[in-house]
Deep mutational scan, measured.
Amino acid sequence: NITNLCPFDEVFNATRFASVYAWNRKRISNCVADYSVLYNFAPFFAFKCYGVSPTKLNDLCFTNVYADSFVIRGNEVSQIAPGQTGNIADYNYKLPDDFTGCVIAWNSNKLDSKVGGNYNYLYRLFRKSNLKPFERDISTEIYQAGNKPCNGVAGFNCYFPLRSYGFRPTYGVGHQPYRVVVLSFELLHAPATVCGPKKST
């Protein structure tokens, strides 16, 4: 009989979020998941679920829940969905086509923008091939755009693969920082350890 609540607040209220190319993952297990707390949290810009209804989450049990978190621009949030393409979905964070879970995003301009620009948040701009679902690539190898080998030196046709967002408070909404948490639900042939409040007695 599990009684402790799942530590969703640790994920959602973290002081610093990860850059999207180096997205953070927390495994959540052996706890009671009260999703209504999240669902009623006012400032969400997006709360979209795939393969599961957000209002039914509290009735369900899962083997594991993974909480992935990172920061992207407002106009990139739409790429955090199954079957998407674009710089983020291709080179930074890719969801599987059969994704079961929820994508939760909110504007973090007050936290993550600075006058003069916040350059701490990076994304991958160049990559030889697209990421596989949930693949994480933190390499900083110089990207070779031409035929000539770069030998690890940036220059003509040789690019550092990461780019900084440089968030400023005055940017338009599409270019403002958004914090994103992706909850993915794993249902294995194993005992369920993460259940909603109704199922955990």
Rank of each mutant, 00 (worst) to 15 (best):
N109S: 00
V153C: 14
L111G: 03
N109L: 03
A33W: 03
R73K: 03
N147M: 11
L122C: 14
A22M: 06
Y21V: 00
K199E: 10
V194P: 03
A42N: 05
T170A: 00
R27V: 10
L111W: 09
P54R: 13
S53D: 05
S200T: 06
S36K: 13
V153N: 07
G174I: 01
F156A: 02
S139E: 04
I2L: 02
P7V: 05
P149Q: 08
K128N: 10
S19A: 07
P197Q: 09
D97V: 14
S29E: 02
A154Q: 07
S29N: 02
E186Q: 06
D97I: 12
V32L: 05
G116W: 00
I2C: 11
D97N: 10
G196V: 14
I104M: 00
P54T: 11
N130I: 07
A190F: 03
A46T: 04
P197Y: 06
I138E: 14
L125P: 09
N64V: 04
L131V: 06
D59Q: 07
P54V: 08
I138M: 14
T201I: 08
L188Y: 11
V194Y: 03
T63S: 06
F160R: 08
G196M: 07
G196F: 05
Q144A: 01
V153D: 15
S53K: 08
A192C: 02
Y121A: 00
A33T: 02
N130Y: 02
N109D: 08
F134E: 05
T193E: 15
D9G: 02
A192W: 09
T170W: 00
K48E: 14
V37L: 14
F47M: 13
P54W: 09
A192V: 13
N24E: 04
N147E: 01
V37S: 10
A46G: 08
S78E: 14
G166A: 15
Y178M: 04
L111H: 15
F156G: 15
N1T: 07
F41W: 10
R136K: 03
K128G: 07
F134D: 03
F45R: 05
I138S: 04
D9I: 03
V173S: 04
L60S: 07
L122H: 06
G196L: 02
S200W: 01
A46K: 04
G146Q: 15
Y171M: 04
N151I: 05
D59G: 02
S129A: 05
A145K: 11
S53P: 01
H175S: 14
G146A: 12
D98A: 04
A67I: 03
S36Q: 03
V173N: 05
R27F: 02
I104V: 05
F156S: 12
N109Y: 07
G146H: 02
N120H: 07
P54M: 11
G196Y: 11
A192R: 05
I142H: 00
S164Y: 00
T15P: 05
T63K: 15
S200Q: 01
P7D: 09
N40P: 08
L60C: 11
A33Q: 03
G196E: 04
L111C: 04
T193N: 02
L125W: 08
K114V: 00
V32C: 13
K128R: 08
G83F: 12
F160K: 15
F8L: 05
G174C: 11
S164V: 02
T85H: 15
Q144V: 10
S184M: 07
A192Q: 15
K114I: 00
F126M: 03
G174D: 11
F126I: 03
G196N: 04
F156P: 11
L122A: 12
P43G: 13
N64C: 03
R168Q: 12
D97H: 10
V37M: 12
N87R: 03
I138T: 08
A190E: 15
L122G: 04
T85G: 07
D59N: 02
E141P: 03
D9R: 03
